[in-house]
Amino acid sequence: MQEIITLDYGSGGKKTSSLIEEIILPLMGNDILDELGDAAVLSGAEKLVFSTDSFVVSPYFFPGGNIGKLSVCGTVNDVCMQGGDPRYLSLSLIIEEGLPMEDLKEIARSIADTAKAAGVRIVTGDTKVVERGHGDGLYINTAGIGTLKSPWLSKRGIRPGDRVIVSGTVGDHGAAVMLARNEDLLTGELLSDCAPLREPALALSALGEDLRIMRDPTRGGVATTLCEFAEGSSFSIRLDETAIPVAPQVASACDILGLDPLYCANEGKLLAVVAKERADEALGILRRFPVSENAAVIGEVRDEYPGKVLVRTRIGGSRIVAKLAGAQLPRIC
């Protein structure tokens, strides 16, 4: 019979220990985690960057990744975007009774592999099991701590003339997940871009204060993140529609599903605003890493229409880019 998670695994007793000792520690163990104390003891005297995120993606396996990989990338990337070098992660698993043990193991392996690739150690954690029907298989919360490398990053540094850079094609994750939910509707080679951004983010900090701000455009996509940059500011951002990299598969899938790639989530892309004179250099830096090899300048900061984000369309018109009201929904025709 297939081995599954039962409520016993959340009892805090033997079964809970077996989960930790047989799955977690062999994959993620290190001198701090191995202590299995109530809390991790960390050393350091630097300024810290601290972030947390919860992951509830459905389905928990999707093309290009799974909830485990996502839970590491999400938090690691948040720390990186704030100018941090991510060092430590906490990992909390909320497991729904009935989750196949094999699925849990595969997800744990992804967590371990991704943490290694991102240069972080998992140093503390928790597991809970909830009754069947009270979760979606598996929810994960991670929190991450990094040391602060680029303390100047802020939208207050953005100036008219600055260039907006995206590290690769937009909308891949959102489109891939949407497709995974509707596999009887469409099939195709569409992978989530889920990846840690530690390397390109740290490398960009070489630009010093000419790197104004970085953000990973997850939920709400590139559009929402740029709106947040512009909101309440004295500048506008103008994008060039033809310069925004969109994978052809993503463009087609979005067209059929009635979605806009600009609003689809990304899980391995960064947006950076850099001084105009350093834009080419920034592109050169990003293109050194596979995760950001398709980096492109997609727009510029201007002093007209303060607070707005505009797109110059391919036929020469323009439109506003506004924040999304609620979730994107599939349409009639």
């Binding site: 369309t313 391919r314 036929i315 020469g316 018109g317 323009s318 439109r319």
Partner: peptide, 9 residues
């Protein structure tokens, strides 16, 4: 029409 900004053209 709205998305491509045709009205302005």
């Amino acid at each position: 029409i709205a998305k491509s900004g045709i009205k302005q053209l």
